[in-house]
Amino acid sequence: MNRITVKTSSKQYDVCIGYGILSNLQSIIENFSPKVSKIVIISDDNVANYYLEDVKNQVAHLTNTDSYNFPNGERSKNFAIYEKCLEFCFESKLDRNSLIIALGGGVVGDLAGFVAATYMRGIRFIQIPTTLLAHDSAIGGKVAINLPKAKNIVGAFYQPELVLYELNFLNTLPIEEWRSGFAEIIKEALISSKENTKWLINSIQSLENLEPNLIEKCVEMGISVKNQIVSEDERENGVRAFLNLGHTLGHAIEAYLGYTKTTHGEAIAFGTLFSIYLSEKLFETDLSFALFLSWFKKLDYPVYLNLDIPSIIELMKQDKKNVEQKINYVLLKDFGVPKICEVEESVLKDQLKCFLTEIIK
C-alpha cells in the first residue's frame, strides 16, 4: 500500500493507494479519535451492487452501520437527492462523532462530501473512490452539487479524514469511464511537466487491458500532482485554478448536453484539446496540437461537432473562475507552465469555430 499525505491549511490526511487495501479500513477507523459512534455509507445503486457488502463487512464490527443508495449518474447531484441524504442521516441518528463513507465515483464523493460538510455543520467522512475519475475528485476537499445549468456551483471546501483507493474496484469500469478518468490524468500531466506529459503519451496507446502496475503509476502521478497543488492552495485562490485546464469548455458541454449525453471526463478531454489549440494560437507556441489530436482519436475520445457556439459561450461565462462574466481561461505557455488569461468573447467564438473545423480535417 502506498501513502501520499495531503497537507492543507485546514487538515492533513493520507491517500492510500493499492490493490487489496480495503482490508485496512477497519484498523484505520479504529484509530480515529474521538471514537466513531455510527457509520452511514452513501453510494449509488450501481456501485452498491458491486462493493457495498465488501465495505459493510469491513466496518461491521466497529459500530452500527446504515447505508443509503441513490440513482447512479450526474443528474442525481441535485438538491432533492442531497435533502434525502440529509434526512437519512438524521433518521439514522448520526451525531458529531459519526462518520460518512462515500463509496463511489465523483458524483458520490461530491454529494456525500457535501452532506458531511453540512450535516450538523460538519461531521467526518472518508472517500473510497471506485472510478479512475475519482482519483482527482476525491483529493482536495471540493464537495458540491449542481444546479440545472451550472455544475458544482453549490458546495464547500471540506477535507476528508482519509482517501482509501482500492484499485481492484476499477476492474468493473466500462471503457467510457476509463476514458473519463484518464482525461484528468492527462490534465495533471500537462500542467505539471514535459516529462510527465511525454511519459504518459509514450506509455498509453490504448485504455483497454492496461497492466495493473501501469494503472497504479498513472494514478500515483495524477494524485501527486493534485496533492502538490491543493497543499499549496486549498481554497483556489491561486494555483489550484490550474486544475481547471479543459474544464471551462468541458463543463459548458456537459451543461449544454444536459449531463446525460457524455461523461464528465470525455467532455473535459475535448475541452483540454481546445485549450492546447487556443494556447498555440494566443501564445504563438508549438504544443504539438496535431499529435494530441491524433492521440485522443486513438484513445477513442468523442468529438462534439454540433455545438451551438453562442450557447456554449454563454455557458462558459457562468464558470466559477470568471468575474463579472469575463471569461478567465486556463491555458499553457508550455507543458508544466499553465497560465490563467482573460479571453475576449469574440476571440473565443472565432477560435472555437476554427477548432471545430480543424478536428474534422
Rank of each mutant, 00 (worst) to 15 (best):
Q325L: 06
K326R: 15
K326S: 09
L332P: 04
K261G: 10
L282Y: 00
N306S: 15
N213V: 08
I229Y: 07
F283V: 06
F242W: 14
S231V: 05
T260L: 04
T263K: 04
V303C: 07
L243W: 01
Q228W: 00
F289W: 10
P302N: 08
C218R: 01
I313E: 03
T262I: 08
A255R: 04
M221C: 10
S294V: 07
N213Q: 14
I215N: 12
I215G: 03
S224C: 03
E232W: 05
C218F: 02
I253C: 13
W295T: 07
F292Q: 11
E232H: 07
T260N: 06
N244Y: 10
V343Y: 09
A269E: 02
H264S: 08
Y304C: 05
H247T: 13
I309P: 00
N306A: 06
K333C: 00
P302I: 05
L305I: 08
V347L: 11
E234R: 04
L305Q: 09
A290K: 08
L287V: 09
E232Q: 15
V337F: 13
Y256L: 12
G271I: 03
Q325S: 14
V239T: 10
I340M: 09
A269V: 01
E266T: 13
T260S: 05
L293A: 12
G336Y: 13
V330T: 13
A267V: 07
Y329T: 01
G222Q: 03
A269N: 12
H251I: 01
D319A: 11
F274D: 05
E232V: 08
I215V: 13
I223T: 08
E220L: 15
Q228S: 15
I313C: 01
G265L: 15
D334W: 03
L332W: 01
G271K: 00
D286K: 12
S231Y: 08
E345W: 00
I268M: 01
E232S: 14
L299G: 03
V239W: 02
S224P: 01
Q325R: 15
Y259K: 15
K217F: 00
K297Y: 01
F296M: 14
K317F: 01
F335D: 09
E280M: 02
D300E: 13
E254D: 03
L305C: 06
L282K: 02
